[in-house]
Amino acid sequence: MLEYILNDHIFVSYICPYLWFIGAAVVLFLEVILDIKAPYGRYNTTNGGIPVRLAWFIQELPSFVIPCYILYNNWSSITITKLIIISFFLIHYFQRVFIYPMLIRGGKHSSYLTTILAFIFCSLNAYSIAEELIVYHIYPNNYLFSLRFLIGTILFFTGFILNLQSDAILRNLRKDNSQRDYQIPRGGLFEYVSGANFLAESIEWTGYAICAGTLPAIAFSVFTWANTAFGRGIHHHKFYLEKFRDEYPKNRKAIIPFIL
């Protein structure tokens, strides 16, 4: 049994993805059904732990470093298709690791446990996605011209751009790092949903799952929808409704425009 678990191909291609599928179900139960909120950001009521900029950098760093390391170790055998697809992953996490934390204004601390768990998840997820894509997966020679690749690429960059826009809207609600009060975000996807940045990121990783076509990428997309979109998005919607009451736009949904 232990030999089976430690088999790299089995671990990367099956064990990690199915752990994320199970994790998605658990997260939906805890966050949506039981209404338990992860203690970071506005839900870290004690504001104890790691400063938000440092926490973001620490927990997201493996998602950039690990794929780069795997890419370096397999450079002699990498195909242009694999290089392009893994570069999408690296583009997202370069922005998330080296740019996004520096742009954060204000923001509460992240608890030590939340940061540690996020670091572990990002490490395993990045390893699973990059190792499967670069080492094990095989793409047809004309894959870059396939409909799957084109649709996935369009969705990925659409989500990426909308995510950047949503983050900028939220960031500009605060004039400086000392401002702590919350305001109603407006513009972009925020005109339709409270969790615009969460919806955008979920669209982004759905596009990547379609584009990459690997089980680890699909599992990550499913987990993102469960944890980030539905879990976090619904909590934010409730937060805004409770805080702003009649001021909050009546037609704005939580995470799915016009539906939920």
Results as ranks from 00 to 15, higher is better:
C16A: 15
L61H: 07
A229T: 04
I15F: 06
I218L: 15
F57M: 08
L113E: 14
F57G: 07
L103E: 13
V32Y: 08
A226G: 01
A126W: 00
N47M: 13
A24Q: 04
V27L: 10
T114K: 04
I15Q: 04
S221T: 00
Y14D: 10
P140N: 14
L150T: 13
G41N: 03
I78E: 12
I161Q: 08
G213L: 08
E131V: 05
Y4Q: 13
L133P: 05
R252T: 06
F98T: 12
I120V: 13
V12I: 07
N227D: 01
Y4A: 13
A229N: 02
I91N: 04
L117G: 11
Q59F: 12
Y127P: 00
N172S: 15
I58K: 00
Y14A: 10
K82A: 06
I80H: 15
R171D: 06
I70D: 03
L54C: 12
R105A: 08
Y18P: 08
K243H: 12
H109V: 15
Y14H: 12
K108R: 15
A196V: 04
W20V: 04
R96V: 08
I84T: 15
C122W: 03
T81Q: 15
Y192E: 05
R148A: 10
I70A: 02
Y143A: 04
G152Q: 05
